[in-house]
């Protein structure tokens, strides 16, 4: 009988987080958590389209929940940091697994129609999303970018002003599209990692992944265009 567990490390959680599969599981869970956040974030932002009053009301109500908001922000911080730190560590380990590369390398997968399939450039798209996130936090969350400081503006005006700035509009559009491409692979990949793969529902998950990616890319990407269009 196979009796002894050979895995190194005594505490089982350390053993799991040290294993390739355990780390993938954490990537998947944090990734799905962040996908959930994207949906909520997009839903809130869509109130911009409903009207200034509704958007301001939503933002004020949200900000009035000081304690809950802090808890949510800490939760998000944990998700982001976990996802990003693991991305960098596993990426380094995975490159180390092939110290000498091939002189020639081709794929046997049917052509996806894209220059690089989403799954093969997750690190690159992830870094773009991270830079986008940092800029987004800097101007919306911390109002740290001097040129975009708008004391006394209401939330709606602030959002429109930031989105209308040509530089940030460009960053927001590109960032949203790249984010869409990132989650196109990430969403369905998380299910595979969590063990969900079945002829009955894998096609549905892949379809939902495409739908989710398009919603994220077009949804978030549309705000700068809209801000530019409503010029008031």
């Amino acid at each position: 009988m196979i009796q002894t567990i050979r895995a190194a490390g005594s505490f089982w959680l350390l053993r799991v987080f040290g294993s390739t599969i355990g780390r993938k599981l954490v990537m998947a869970v944090t990734g799905l958590g962040l996908c959930g956040f994207l949906i909520m974030h997009l839903a809130g932002n869509l109130l911009l389209y409903v009207g200034a009053e509704e958007y301001n009301h939503y933002a004020d109500t949200l900000h009035a929940q000081a304690i809950l908001l802090t808890i949510a922000e800490i939760g998000l911080l944990i998700l982001f940091v976990g996802h990003i730190v693991l991305a960098f560590t596993t990426d380094r380990e995975n490159s180390a697994a092939r110290p000498v590369g091939y002189a020639m390398k081709q794929t046997k997968q049917p052509p996806s129609g894209m220059a690089a399939p989403a799954s093969s450039i997750m690190m690159a798209t992830g870094i773009v999303v991270l830079l986008f996130l940092l800029l987004h936090l800097a101007d919306f969350r911390f109002s740290a970018l001097g040129i975009r400081k708008h004391d006394g503006d209401d939330h709606f005006t602030k959002a429109v002003n930031i989105l209308r700035d040509p530089l940030s509009a460009g960053v927001y559009i590109v960032g949203s599209l790249v984010l869409g491409y990132h989650v196109l692979h990430g969403f369905q990949s998380a299910f595979q990692t969590l063990g969900f793969n079945h002829p009955k529902y894998t096609p549905i998950i892949k379809f939902l992944s495409g739908l989710f990616a398009a919603t994220v890319a077009l949804g978030f990407g549309s705000f700068p265009l809209w801000a530019w269009a409503i010029q008031k």
């Binding site: 567990i5 050979r6 895995a7 190194a8 053993r15 040290g18 294993s19 390739t20 599969i21 780390r23 993938k24 596993t90 380990e93 995975n94 490159s95 180390a96 697994a97 092939r98 399939p117 799954s119 093969s120 997750m122 692979h185 990949s189 595979q192 990692t193």
Partner: peptide, 15 residues
């Protein structure tokens, strides 16, 4: 899985 990791193979990224 422990032996697989110990041998120095990389992790799966579902490509």
């Amino acid at each position: 899985v422990a032996q697989m990791d110990q041998e120095g193979f990389g992790g799966c990224t579902n490509t």
